Amino acid sequence: MENINSDNSIEKIEFLITRLVDFSNENEFDHTLYLSFANEKAKTFNRYFAEIDNETHKAKIISDLKTNFHFEVDNIVNEMLSTKDNTQYPSDGTTYYISRPILDTRIKSYKNNYKELIQLFLNSVEFETKSKVKDKTKEAWFLTGIQLANGKAYELRDQGFSFRDIALKLGFKASDNSYFSTSFGTSKDSKNIFNSLDRLKEIIEHCNLHDIKICSKFSSECASKYQNELIFN
């Protein structure tokens, strides 16, 4: 269930951004004043941002802050410039518009002020999202490699077990048997762990680090494909 406080925090952040817009429109640029305001709002932002549980919502807020600010200022400036005369001339019924006014000093100043404030604000906020990095030690290819490296998979195969039975006996799903069947042969399939030097390095490094004895069949298979490129303890 989505945290109610999280929803409130998103609304508060939206209001906070509106205040940045208003402030830059109401105040002439003064570095000390703008820096103080930006820091104050950044602290508030950080507090509300930390209360949001949904990582997707947090990622969207970060994206909006980093990419949409310039659209915001352009929209406001365009609104300032959108004066028009909708007088209907009875002769032909055409609506004539007064040409857009030239960007005056006040609008130029506002645009510059807003950009200055946003930059000060972005320099102060802290974006913290949880890392979505996969734990490789729980992936089928890695676990298969460990069972090959420690020799258990070879022992079961020598006893005549099918690859499906090997997978089940070693705690895998039946559908993971293809990792074993391809790794025992010369398949070019990506599930054959011997087709990836990088994966083999990770498996061997794990074994070395955790004092897992590597069987001779595994080390021989590695050596036949990658001579002098893998280090065994």
Rank of each mutant, 00 (worst) to 15 (best):
S63T: 12
E55R: 12
E139C: 09
R157A: 06
E28I: 13
Y179M: 09
K130W: 01
T32W: 13
K115P: 05
T186V: 13
I231H: 08
F172V: 09
S178K: 09
I13Y: 01
D211K: 05
V77K: 03
V133R: 14
T44I: 03
K130H: 08
S131I: 00
D189V: 09
R199C: 13
E155R: 12
S63D: 05
K191R: 14
K41V: 06
P90I: 02
N233D: 06
F69T: 02
D135R: 06
L20F: 03
T67W: 05
E202V: 06
K217M: 04
T87Y: 08
R19A: 11
I17R: 07
Y179C: 00
L209K: 11
L117N: 09
K60Y: 12
K66A: 07
E126V: 15
D92W: 09
G185W: 08
K201H: 09
D64T: 04
F15N: 09
N192K: 01
K66Y: 12
N150Q: 07
V133T: 09
N177K: 11
L122A: 02
D85A: 12
N192R: 03
R47I: 13
T87L: 09
T67M: 02
G185Q: 03
G93R: 15
V21M: 10
I17K: 08
E11G: 05
E55W: 12
V77H: 07
R157G: 02
S183N: 03
T182N: 15
D211V: 03
D176G: 06
N233H: 13
S131G: 04
Y226W: 12
L81V: 03
M1H: 14
V133I: 13
Y154M: 02
A38M: 01
I107T: 13
K58I: 02
L81N: 05
T95Y: 15
E155K: 15
L197K: 10
S216Y: 00
S131Y: 10
L120A: 00
N78G: 13
R100F: 11
I13R: 01
V21E: 07
I10H: 07
L209C: 01
I231Y: 10
S36G: 07
V21C: 03
D53R: 14
Y110A: 00
I193L: 14
T105N: 05
N78H: 11
T56V: 04
T83A: 12
F29G: 09
S162W: 03
T56W: 11
F180W: 14
